[in-house]
Structure formats: C-alpha cells, structure tokens
Simulated assay, not measured.
Amino acid sequence: MSTTEAIERDADPSSEDRWAAVRDMPPSAKLVAKVLDYEDTLTQSQIAEESLLPPRTVRYALSRLEEEGAVDSRFSFSDARKRLYTLNV
C-alpha cells in the first residue's frame, strides 16, 4: 500500500479499523492478538511461550478476545484436549 493510499484510507471514515475490537483491551490481550497476527494459529501454551506471559494471563486475554469476536478457537485434531486460536480481525 502506498503512502497516499494509506492516508486516503485513514481519512475515509467509512473504512473500518481492523484493530478496533482490540484497541480498548488490556495490554496482555493486545500482545496476544499481535502474537496471533504474526504466527497465525497457536495453542494457549504456544502463545504463552511466544509472548512470555504467564498461562493464566494468556487465558484471561484469550477469553477477552473471544468475547469481542477478535479470536476464533477450535479443537485441535491432533490433541482434542487442546484448542487452537486464530486471530479474527
């Protein structure tokens, strides 16, 4: 995207901000969303490893992100005890 296109997109009030659902969330939720943005699909333990956040904090962040519809989760086919999380924004 060129600089001109970026400026026009920002100036256009009808363009939807991709990160609007995440903007007012706690910093841990923003970090988890950014990790998922880079890594695509991860388990909760993989997110904790990548973000260096405690598992409990990752659980809380994922629950907040799921409430807002910013993250989708599904069961892992290889291990049904685990869930896979994907960014939805």
Score class of each variant (00 low, 15 high):
I47S: 03
Q44A: 11
D17I: 10
E39K: 07
L62Y: 06
A80D: 12
E68F: 01
E68T: 13
P54N: 09
F75D: 13
R74C: 01
S63R: 07
A29W: 04
E66D: 05
A33T: 14
T43P: 03
K30S: 06
S78R: 05
L53D: 08
S2T: 15
R56E: 09
S2L: 02
D17P: 09
L87T: 13
N88P: 08
I7T: 14
T4R: 06
R64C: 05
T4N: 05
A33H: 13
S14M: 03
S73G: 02
S15P: 03
F77E: 14
A11Q: 14
S78D: 08
L84R: 13
D72H: 07
E67H: 12
S45K: 10
A21P: 05
P13G: 07
L42A: 11
V58H: 01
K34N: 14
V89W: 04
G69I: 09
L36E: 01
Q46H: 13
E49F: 08
E49H: 13
T86N: 00
L53T: 11
A29P: 04
P27D: 02
L84T: 15
S45W: 04
E5N: 12
V58C: 04
S73W: 01
K34Q: 15
L87A: 15
A11T: 14
R81E: 10
V89I: 11
D17S: 12
R83S: 01
L65M: 14
L52D: 10
G69Y: 04
V35H: 03
R18H: 09
S76H: 07
L62W: 05
A70M: 03
A6T: 13
Y60E: 05
V71C: 07
A20W: 08
D10N: 14
V35L: 00
R23H: 03
